[in-house]
């Protein structure tokens, strides 16, 4: 395959959307109100839409018989490049929103840079996605404030979620080999440059939400290299079930 770097880089972008969308999709029908169900499903649908655009592009590059679905459903666990953050389970509504918010802020910063990519397809996907993700940041950010500065109980739950997920934030700014090469060509975003702004933005909002910024300097990483948490296997078992049980069929 030509353009192996680009292919891998697209997966790095797309897998975050795919897995984050999958996690939100689990909740449809089980949220705290009909209104929040509808809103979270919208975010999930945006993310799956972005996933499809990326994978269709990746399938073109890969050629052979690759399709958006073969790329989405028929890889092995070690081949998924999403960050550990987005695969974390929906322990409660605070976890779900904290996970989504911590990802959204990064996602928007990334897209704001990616829209200037020399790769026109990536640039076009980024431009379209920015509008969607701007809304995601606003929606989840508002909810972080509500739960952080709501009741004692909600504050404790949101703090616990932030504490639990904080360890996965640093990985967002790890630069993979592919991304490094492509960044030099003006195609990929050097995500390490987003780190300072990210933590400033997140700190400001969490502070407004009366939450404490975790002090721990110990971070987890591995997702971008395909080494996932134990949750990932179950997520994939669910997601890939049909394609694995009934191979080579059209749906």
């Amino acid at each position: 395959m030509k353009k192996t770097n680009l292919y891998n880089y697209i997966l790095e972008l797309a897998d975050n959307c795919l897995i984050a969308g999958q996690r939100l999709g689990e909740l449809c029908g089980h949220g705290p109100s009909l209104e929040t169900d509808i809103a979270c499903t919208n975010i999930s649908l945006d993310l799956f839409g972005q996933t499809r655009s990326y994978f269709q592009y990746a399938a073109d590059i890969k050629g052979e018989d690759a399709t958006e679905d073969s790329i989405a459903f028929l890889r092995f666990e070690r081949e998924y490049k999403n960050v550990l953050l987005v695969e974390q389970p929906n322990r409660d509504f605070a976890y779900t929103l904290a996970r989504q918010y911590l990802f959204d802020v990064y996602h928007l910063l990334l897209l704001e840079k990616l829209q200037f990519s020399q790769d026109l397809t990536l640039s076009a996907i980024a431009k379209k996605s920015i509008k969607e993700v701007s809304y995601h940041v606003r929606f989840t950010g508002d909810w972080i404030k509500r739960l952080g500065d709501g009741t004692e109980e909600s504050h404790a739950k949101m703090q616990e979620a932030i504490d639990g997920l904080w360890t996965y934030t640093n990985e967002l700014f790890e630069v993979t080999e592919e991304a490094k090469t492509l960044a030099e060509e003006g195609i990929a975003v050097d995500v390490s440059t987003l780190k300072k702004t990210y933590y400033e933005k997140v700190t400001a909002l969490l502070t407004e939400a009366t939450l404490t910024i975790p002090e721990s300097k110990y971070f987890q990483k591995g997702g971008k290299a395909g080494i996932h948490t134990e949750h990932m296997g179950y997520l994939l078992a669910d997601m890939q079930y049909m394609q694995r049980a009934y191979p080579n069929m059209k749906w």
Binding site: I38, T41, D69, F73, D238
Partner: peptide, 24 residues
């Protein structure tokens, strides 16, 4: 909703999600 996470293709997944969302 029982099949959202297991839908066999991305196209089917978004259609099903949108449908269940409509029901909400």
């Amino acid at each position: 909703g029982n099949w959202i996470t297991r839908a066999p293709s991305l196209r089917r997944k978004v259609a099903l999600l949108a449908k269940v969302q409509d029901e909400a």
